[in-house]
């Protein structure tokens, strides 16, 4: 079982709530995914449409909310957003996202480290979204992070694990759970992430924009389970030459 801070998770597939066509479609996909940790963003209430409340679609006993700080540009704004999220959603868990550049949404490592230090001191369970930077991961551990969430490729790009060499380094030396976030485009990407030893993956776009989000969510669920099983069963070594699987007896020779 995966443990982060005080919570244990039987599902290693975390999901996001963005980009679905409707709340009903989102809810069906989240339930099919089996996910127990689900991200939400913050927004100013639309005073002309005060019935618009995503939370009523997330009220399932197995689903824990993970509010994010998307939209902030600095550590100071992130701390404020985390405090607003805690007020609104009664959780001290926060997905820390500080990505000021709208084109590539690259996380700002300096502001993220500062915010992690401050939020950890304030009692938050901090899950920071970061580049696949092994050095930053160790600095975040020192700052009191509950997990690290390195990216596979840019948010929403569906490009998969372009950072895999660095993800492997992060996984090999991390003392906190490693959740691969961003860019996972297909169940095979998720399986690969789990095979290399990730503790969990966070998937949103690849499910939400697919032709059938509920079925895709289930495909991700199975892929994550398969990848984790493969990791635990220990994959065979990779060789540069053939290694025969059948006995090379010369049974046709005289």
């Amino acid at each position: 079982m995966l443990k982060i801070a005080d919570k244990t998770f039987s599902s290693r597939l975390f999901t996001g709530t963005g980009k679905f066509n409707s709340a009903a479609q989102m809810e069906a996909a989240l339930l099919a995914s089996g996910s127990e940790l689900v991200t939400v963003a913050l927004k100013r209430i639309d005073l002309k449409d005060t019935e618009d409340d995503i939370l009523m679609h997330l009220q399932h006993s197995h689903i824990h909310l993970l509010p994010n700080t998307s939209g902030v540009r600095t550590a100071k704004e992130a701390v404020f957003a985390a405090q607003l999220a805690r007020e609104a959603m009664h959780t001290n868990w926060i997905k820390l996202e500080i990505h000021p550049d709208p084109k590539y949404l690259m996380p700002d490592p300096i502001e993220t480290l500062k915010a992690t230090e401050e939020l950890a001191k304030l009692g938050f369970i901090v899950l920071p979204y970061i580049h696949a930077d092994p050095v930053l991961c160790k600095r975040l551990e020192d700052a009191g992070t509950a997990a690290v969430m390195p990216l596979g490729s840019p948010i929403g790009s569906n490009k998969g694990l372009r950072t895999i060499d660095f993800l492997e380094i992060i996984i090999s030396q991390s003392n906190v759970p490693v959740i691969i976030d961003a860019g996972i485009g297909s169940p095979s990407d998720a399986a690969k992430a789990m095979e290399i030893g990730a503790d969990a993956v966070l998937v949103n776009t690849a499910i939400a924009v697919s032709g059938n989000p509920a079925v895709m969510a289930e495909a991700f669920k199975i892929a994550v389970q398969a990848g984790r099983m493969a990791f635990e069963a220990q994959l065979g070594l990779i060789h540069s030459q053939a290694v025969a699987s059948s006995p090379l007896t010369s049974f046709l020779d005289d």
Partner: peptide, 10 residues
């Protein structure tokens, strides 16, 4: 006054 609530996000 600022009023905030949850919305869809990843």
């Amino acid at each position: 006054v600022m009023l905030i609530r949850a919305t869809q996000g990843g």
